[in-house]
């Protein structure tokens, strides 16, 4: 089953460059990248270390803004938004999955998943609890609901992170090397989980990876080399 192709891209990068000062030098992490990502995409960004994968993800994830060019999320250029507005945008439209899971250590599974909903507000307590329970169930952690991250395995932690990223029903989920800290079996299961959610909810997934196995799960693969897109092609579904 293939995702529907929308007329308007959910993410659009036009001539995006990003420079970082590094001492007296300037590192050009991205050099004029153009990229359109359609709603419901399941796209992998690949490339060697220092190729600009993370920078690209940061720009799309609205935790950073480009030095030149424009990053548009649902048509809205991130450069035109204040920091506060960017934060609100992230809260409501984006979900994040991190390489090191980045769970709040002092909160249990349920509370970690609940956190974005608390930040958003607007739900009744009961509704919020139902949403969290449903999400925890979806990632298969109902028995671990009241455990804290340090009591969970790496795979379980990443599932919590996925649940946290998805609980607000974001339009886009950003995942930075989501399987890098997991063994291949667990990593594979995580990718499968993400893929399932993508199929069911049409949530757009953008993830960076340098794992060929993971890349093979993507429907589209963008390869970066030295801050430029070296290749951008669909991937045959590996079933």
């Amino acid at each position: 089953m293939s995702a529907p192709i929308a007329a308007d891209p959910i993410v659009e990068l036009v001539g995006v460059s990003k420079d970082y000062p590094l001492g007296k030098l300037t590192v050009q992490a991205l050099r004029g990248v153009d990229l359109r990502i359609e709603r419901g995409a399941f796209i992998a960004i690949a490339g060697p270390s220092g190729s600009g994968k993370t920078t690209l993800l940061n720009l799309v994830g609205c935790v950073d803004v480009p030095t030149a060019g424009a990053v548009r999320i649902e048509g809205q250029s991130t450069s035109e938004l204040s920091e506060k507005q960017l934060t609100t945008l992230r809260l409501h439209k984006l979900g994040f999955i991190f390489q090191s899971f980045n769970l709040v250590g002092v909160l249990d599974v349920f509370q970690n998943v609940e956190l974005p909903l608390l930040l958003q507000g607007g739900l009744t307590g009961a509704e919020r609890k139902r949403r969290v329970a449903e999400m925890v169930d979806k990632v298969g952690l109902t028995p671990q609901t009241r455990q804290r991250p340090n009591e969970l395995s790496g795979g379980q932690r990443q599932r919590v992170a996925i649940a946290r990223a998805l609980v607000t029903r974001p339009a886009i989920v950003m995942a930075d090397e989501p399987t890098a800290n997991l063994d291949s079996t667990t990593g594979g299961a995580i990718i499968e989980l993400m893929k399932d959610i993508n199929r069911e909810d049409h949530t757009t997934f953008i993830f960076s990876t340098h794992d060929a196995n993971v890349m093979s799960h993507a429907r589209r693969l963008v390869e970066l080399v030295d801050g430029r897109i070296a290749a951008d092609h669909p991937v045959a579904e590996a079933d």
């Binding site: 609100t88 809260l91 979900g95 991190f98 980045n102 974005p116 930040l119 990223a165």
Partner: peptide, 16 residues
């Protein structure tokens, strides 16, 4: 710093 950064990334405002 990383925990705080994470909170900020997932949408926590500065005042939080």
């Amino acid at each position: 710093v990383r925990e705080i950064g994470t909170l900020r990334a997932i949408g926590a405002q500065r005042r939080f």
